[in-house]
Design a protein around this nucleic acid. Structure first.
Lengths: 227, 227
DNA sequence: TCGGCGACTGACTGGCCAGTCAGTCGTCCA
DNA sequence: TGGACGACTGACTGGCCAGTCAGTCGCCGA
């Protein structure tokens, strides 16, 4: 087997082991066993356990960065925004193993914990979902997949809280509350067809649709819009 | 020092150490050093390292569960929903140390990694934020804190992807894309005042405002609404 | 045919740390 | 006064595992 293939094989094995056991519980012995080589061989290809992980993660990030495009406001914005969402989702879902480690809250904790924590989240989500379904029958929640609504809500909430807990200076709590509420109420994009169930929209100011969208580290140029 | 205080002191120290170093890198020796007791003492109060962590997390979850109320659709729904958001946010922000571990992606990884991963997220968020600001000048993004919009978006995206990567059977990707887009576009709550900048809303079906909202594990009764 | 080389091997070591336990110390009855 | 008891101590051990390195193996060119 050539050096290139052996290296790839090791990365493949590592990806699988990391995703199953998490970074800490993944032993180099597990990786080499899966790749069917001796432990020493691993160290011929990677300096240490950390560096193979770094390489794995770096590759994923690069794929995401490369897939996202700066939106050109002069053409179909909705399609472009969707393209970017699609690209990110694809990059991530195509590497479920790594995604799992990266996004898994509390990765590296004992499996028993991860289970406990996840079941709390799942319980919360189920509860919220039930409420949303009830809300839909009452007409105060838009029609659509309530489970997804619940997922979005929890995701936005977690991220918001995490950011505030990590940042040096947190925002005023009431502002946090109001902003999240407003977001759940009306999103923020003001393009495309009217809201899920509403009638005709009030149409925003300029008819000139312009755009935006994420573009990780590897950014593209293009900033033509006359701000 | 009484047994109760000693125990509390150990938990206080553990919370701090865990939040600083993450679960794996937190050594029992660190905890006892901070609590100024000998290692043996730790084991007089807790069976092992895991159990003190479980206790810490359990307490937090309980506080959250207790703070959230089932929304009564007969009175001010907006205020009740906000109350719940507020309660959750408060419970979490009041224990930043634990929240950090729980929500920290990749908790337990080497600090160097955590840094790398976070900087990728931060870069992504900044990029998205810039795009959103541009979108605001063009009128296709609602006025408001662009940074928050970016945070919400990333949070919802992460959660969605994580769920799909974890679940046995994932949703069709195009559905994922469309749902997330729709969410960013219009949120889902259909109560309260009109959207941030829009004119008069089309007013949903029943005028009887009814509600919903999460209520973790410890749920409250009350399901009066005639579905 | 030999020796040089690159790929690979796996037993071994060194460090780390969770958890143990024999022993100290002060206090409070009897 | 002594001895029983509960709280606490910290040196020590046992297991685990990342990383090492002396050595094997097969191939190729001289």
């Amino acid at each position: 087997m050539g050096k290139i293939e052996r290296r790839k094989e090791l990365m493949r094995a590592a990806r699988e082991v990391f995703s199953t056991k998490g970074y800490h519980d993944a032993k180099v012995d597990d990786i080499v066993a899966l790749a069917k080589v001796a432990k020493g061989t691993f160290y011929l290809y990677f300096a240490d356990k950390r560096s193979i992980f770094v390489e794995l993660v770096g590759t994923l990030f690069q794929r995401i960065g490369a897939a996202v495009l700066k939106v050109d406001p002069r053409s179909d914005v909705e399609e472009q925004v969707k393209h970017n969402i699609r690209a990110i989702v694809a990059a991530l879902l195509d590497d479920p193993a790594l995604t799992k480690i990266l996004f898994s809250y509390a990765a590296g904790l004992d499996p028993a914990f991860v289970t406990a924590i996840r079941s709390f989240y799942d319980g919360s989500r189920a509860m919220l979902e039930a409420s949303l379904i009830e809300g839909q029958t009452l007409g105060i929640v838009a029609p659509g997949d309530a489970r997804l609504f619940a997922t979005f809500t929890l995701g936005a909430l977690k991220e918001l809280v995490f950011e505030n807990v990590t940042a040096e200076k947190a925002m005023p709590r009431e502002e946090i509350v109001n902003e999240l509420f407003a977001f759940l109420q009306g999103g923020y994009l003001r393009i495309g067809p009217p809201l899920r169930e509403s009638g005709p929209p009030p149409a925003p100011p300029p008819p000139t649709t312009k755009a935006k969208k994420k573009a990780p580290p590897a950014a593209k140029k293009k900033t033509t819009p006359g701000r």
